[in-house]
Amino acid sequence: MGRGKVELKRIENSASRQVTFSKRRNGLLKKAFELSILCEAEVSLIIFSPSGKFYQFSSHDMERSVARYRSEVGLPGTNDQRSRSLEFWRSEIEELRRTINKTEAQLRHFIGEDIAPLGLKELKQLERQLKTGVERIRSKKKRVISEHIKLLKSEQRALQEENARLQKRLHELPDANVSSRIPEPNACNAFHQQRIFLDGSHH
């Protein structure tokens, strides 16, 4: 009797799934090898395991097979990709260089340097930008000063409250010293009774 048909679905048990992967991977690599020998076919096989491990088989040079595949499906070759990549980065570098030069020129204009080539339109635009910048700086300066004044006032109130508390304690200290030197009534009575007893014993 032949084996029953295996239902194609994900194997839930991880150990069984790994065993099945190893067996079928080896079988697939064997079939690829046999196909290349029996039929003189150019066979290339690439496998990535679920954990990311890499396996491959190629009856010929793998790079040549990949280049042939890319050519067949209309994908750019490796050399074309490198050329396009270099061209792209050259363009990016040139664009960044132009941006840097433009920004440096604007900074020099803001401090009044290299403005001789500027026309009336550029000078008016520069003046508006400077006015806007000065207004923003003044507004920020006012906010910083206002916040600083609030902080100083808060610290002043805290110091005044602390000073008042210390003054109150200072005024309370003499009364506490005097009261500590005055004997309590019970202590005075006991002292007089002891004197009377001692005087009587002498007689």
Rank of each mutant, 00 (worst) to 15 (best):
R82M: 12
I37M: 09
S58Y: 07
V134R: 07
K131A: 08
L28A: 00
A164E: 10
L170M: 01
L118S: 02
F54Y: 14
G112K: 02
A176H: 02
S36Y: 07
K150N: 15
D114I: 00
E42D: 09
N177G: 05
A15S: 00
R68M: 12
A41C: 06
L38P: 01
E42R: 13
C188Q: 08
T132Y: 08
M1S: 14
K9H: 10
E94Y: 08
Q193G: 10
R165P: 04
A32P: 12
Q56S: 13
T78Q: 12
R68A: 08
A32T: 03
E162F: 01
G200P: 03
A190V: 07
F88E: 07
G4A: 12
S201M: 10
Q129R: 14
R3W: 14
L29K: 09
K53R: 04
R90D: 10
F33P: 02
S154C: 12
M1T: 05
E162K: 13
R181S: 06
K168C: 01
I182E: 01
G77W: 05
G27I: 00
N163W: 13
Y55W: 15
A158P: 11
A67T: 14
K53N: 07
S91W: 08
A187P: 00
R136S: 04
N79D: 00
A32W: 11
F48L: 14
